[in-house]
């Protein structure tokens, strides 16, 4: 075996972890998630083919019936699907965290001299990469199917950034869910059960005006609806400032409520 590469009698033990080390550790664990993604074509297909299926399904199956014209409807539904996909992608953090917790690897991490938060930051970091891949795929397929952005590049990118930031804020709730149930399959299942009704009782697929009053009320409070309104405005034109404000308020609520709870639960486990 080679000579020692780590502290020996000559180098005293470290007392604290430096910020640089925390970043290296988090990046190392993000990288792990990305390597896993590459090794799991199924997981990647999920984020790439999912957007394509939704676009084709809603554009060509429902588009004619809802809007009379497939092209018009794609223009309408595209920002909605973008918002919904980025919410679905947050499940990635939950699934990878609960998988680690249910297997021995989390104990390994905890026995290492690394920052406690590094595995969590790593899971979030690799999820951002997943989200970026998903966004790129969605925009690529959208353009292929004839979606035309009616604003400028800067606004479109801002819309993407907003969806990503919203997903990160929601991730705190997903982290809490994962820490509470610890079963990857259950996290995925429960996540879908929560996201689907939120997605459909909103303006993602149809304007809320056709819904019964009580559902309109629900939809007007639905955080996904505000996000989609803002993204729609940024990508297709229309009012931006009010839905953007409401989206930012919702994001703040998610962070303020769920981040401390998640961190408490995480520190108890990690």
């Amino acid at each position: 075996m080679t000579a020692a590469t780590l502290p020996t009698a000559h180098t005293p033990l470290r007392k604290h972890i430096g910020l640089g080390q925390v970043l290296v550790q988090s990046a190392t664990l993000s990288r792990r998630g990305i390597v896993k993604l590459r090794r799991h074509p199924a997981g990647l297909a999920d984020v790439i083919i999912g957007p394509a299926i939704f676009l084709v399904l809603f554009g060509y199956v429902f588009g004619g019936a809802i809007s009379g014209d497939t092209g018009d409807y794609l223009q309408y539904v595209f920002p909605g699907i973008l918002g919904m996909m980025s919410l679905f992608a947050t499940m990635g953090v939950g699934v990878s965290l609960s998988t680690d917790l249910s297997e021995g690897i989390f104990d390994r991490f905890r026995s290492l001299p690394i920052a406690r938060i590094a595995p969590l930051v790593g899971a979030i970091g690799s999820d951002i990469v997943r989200q970026l891949v998903s966004l790129a795929a969605l925009i690529g397929f959208g353009l292929l199917l004839g979606v035309r952005f009616e604003t400028n590049l800067w606004s479109v990118l801002s819309g993407c950034a907003l969806a990503l930031a919203f997903a990160l804020a929601v991730s705190w709730a997903v982290v809490l869910l994962a820490l509470a149930i610890k079963d990857p399959m259950a996290v995925q299942g429960l996540g879908a059960v929560i996201i689907l009704p939120l997605a459909f009782a909103s303006n993602i697929f149809v304007p809320v005006e056709t819904m019964p009053g009580w559902m309109q009320t629900f939809a007007s409070w639905n955080p996904i609806g505000h996000l989609v309104d803002a993204v729609r405005g940024l990508m297709m034109g229309g009012p931006v400032s009010e839905p953007l404000m409401l989206t930012l308020i919702w994001m703040a609520v998610f962070v303020v409520v769920f981040a401390p709870l998640s961190l408490i639960a995480y520190n108890r486990r990690a």
């Binding site: 470290r14 896993k36 104990d107 026995s111 290492l112 001299p113 690394i114």
Partner: peptide, 21 residues
């Protein structure tokens, strides 16, 4: 704990490696 973690190695009862890596 932080100093102890710099000194120890652990092999758990259930193999604690990442099976996808």
């Amino acid at each position: 704990a932080y100093k102890v973690r710099q000194l120890i190695g652990l092999t758990g009862q259930y193999a604690s490696v990442d099976k996808d890596l």
